[in-house]
Design a protein around this nucleic acid. Structure first.
Lengths: 134, 134
DNA sequence: CTAAACTCTGGACCATAGTCCAGAGTCAAT
DNA sequence: ATTGACTCTGGACTATGGTCCAGAGTTTAG
């Protein structure tokens, strides 16, 4: 089997070397083998796995979730994978809603702020300084 | 001046006691004074400041940004405050865009997944396992 | 006065995802 | 053979925002 070193793996997948070692430390990605010198060697499978991790992160999964996904994937449990992805979707939708609310508040505040003059007339400060408890 | 203890402050503003102490440790909120026993006492100003912090967080500002905002607020520098809020808005808009992309990807993947059958037919797994480098 | 409730300190620890380092050893190309 | 590039380990450190703890001391209500 053709194997590559950690530097080449990192370069080809587009992940920092330290991050590859980090993934190993947390049990997410083990090298296929080691040279007598201790140098890590990776094969096709590890390369795929690392790409899987990278894509999972791009989709907003945490490393723990990716670990889970990889386990499910190995078990070829399509139903669980679908469920996991759905949970992720719900979470992301909730976060988007939250951010939308924040964005709207900020937009209003900024639009209402003249950008000069008395601090008392700045709605941004006022919003943060309100006496009301909410 | 009427002052209150840390417990009452935490309760009234709706923040855990430990968090109030944490804010003190990082230099964000100092008690107005201390009793001879060392007990912290907070006045109106501190209560306002803590509410300011709480609202800032709700708007998605980091504690560092809130610190900055408080300094600008003390300096009553309306222009800087507006700029800071605008930067925050831009950041939030960018994050929303990112999340929207992720959400769309997940939706497509989930919609295309039958939820059963061969793993090879699961588009979620396929998306994560693609041989292509992107 | 006593008992319950509150508060003090300083440091450790949590999760998340890395990032960096020194000092030693190894590999590859010339 | 030598040089330059690469890799090893393990632990410390980064940032963010808390959260918890023990053991001692203080305040307050009955």
């Amino acid at each position: 089997m053709k194997t590559i070193g950690i530097g080449q793996l990192a370069k080809e997948v587009g992940v920092p070397i330290d991050t590859v070692r980090h993934y190993e430390r947390i049990g997410l990605l083990q090298p296929a083998t080691r040279l007598a010198s201790g140098y890590r060697r990776y094969g096709e499978a590890e390369q795929k796995r690392l790409r899987f991790i990278r894509r999972g992160k791009a989709l907003g999964f945490t490393l723990d979730e990716i670990d889970e996904l990889l386990a499910l994937s190995a078990g070829r449990n399509v139903q669980s994978i679908r469920k996991s992805a759905s949970a992720r979707l719900t979470d992301i939708e909730r976060r988007i809603e939250e951010l939308n609310r924040v964005r709207d508040s900020l937009r209003q505040l900024i639009a209402a702020c003249p950008g000069h003059g008395r601090a008392e007339a700045c709605p941004i400060l006022n919003a943060l300084s309100e006496d009301a408890k909410p």
